[in-house]
Structures are given as structure tokens and as C-alpha cells.
Design a protein around this nucleic acid. Structure first.
Length: 119
DNA sequence: CTCTTGACTGAGG
DNA sequence: GCCTCAGCCAAGA
């Protein structure tokens, strides 16, 4: 069917819940990272990247590899929310990622694109 | 119901 | 590269 009309009107809200974010984060391969923006875009709301960050804040005590999510330039913007200021960096380094001054080196080589690689 | 809080991002200057 | 502004919206108080 033609969904032209249904797209013009809101056929479905492009919202997502914390659980949706966590589901995607758990798919990030070991030794790779992704960004808040990519997750938001994958979930159909590319401008809601900040919601992804809030979801990460709520992921404490859960089995979520939140350390594999960084901001668009490879900066460990969420490092402060781990137990110690260096916990996030140490987790990433344990997976082979090189970090200098809170910034991932060779970011383009380790970033994981859900839209491309998750089909 | 209202209001605040953000681990963000893209555009414009 | 820097800074500011506005859009985005779930969750909790």
C-alpha cells in the first residue's frame, strides 16, 4: 500500500523507552563503541540523542555495557557517572580501545554503526 | 496535571 | 576550532 498519507499524519510516534536503548547497547560488539546519536537514529528519533544519555544514567545495576557509548567525537562524556573517573576508560582499554585524555583514538576505526551493521 | 533534569546534537556565527 | 541556541522527550518529583 502507499503509505504517503500515513507518513504525513503521525501513524506512529517515533518515541522509544529506556528498554529500547538498552536492547541496542547490549548488541554493541566487544571492542567497539557507538554514539548516543547513532542509537537515537537507529530507534527512529535521531534528534533525541539526549534521551539515550538519560537511559544510560538509568542503566545502573543492569547488565548494560554503557561504557561502549560515547559522544559523537569519541569523548567519554559519561565517564563521570561510573564509580571512579577512570572506570569507563579502564573498561574500554580492557577491550583494546586506546584512550588519551578521555578521548578515543582512531575513533572511526572502532565506532559501530547499528544502521549499517545491524541491517 | 506541571515542572525540572539532563551520559546529546546540528546549525549558525 | 570555539560558543550559543534550540530541538528533543522519558522519567520522577
Amino acid at each position: 500500500m502507499t503509505r504517503k498519507s500515513s507518513l504525513l499524519k503521525s501513524e506512529k510516534k517515533n518515541t522509544f523507552t529506556f528498554q529500547d536503548v538498552w536492547d541496542v547497547v547490549m548488541l554493541i560488539p566487544r571492542g567497539r563503541v557507538t554514539t548516543y546519536g547513532f542509537i537515537a537514529k537507529y530507534l527512529g528519533s535521531s534528534r533525541s540523542s539526549q534521551m539515550v544519555g538519560i537511559a544510560m544514567n538509568a542503566s545502573h545495576s543492569k547488565n548494560i555495557p554503557a561504557h561502549r557509548v560515547v559522544n559523537k567525537v569519541g569523548l567519554l562524556s559519561g565517564a563521570h557517572h561510573f564509580g571512579t573517573p577512570t572506570a569507563m576508560q579502564e573498561l574500554l582499554e580492557a577491550e583494546g580501545i586506546v584512550i588519551v585524555e578521555n578521548q578515543i583514538q582512531d575513533f572511526e576505526k572502532v565506532v559501530w554503526h547499528p544502521l549499517q551493521e545491524l541491517v
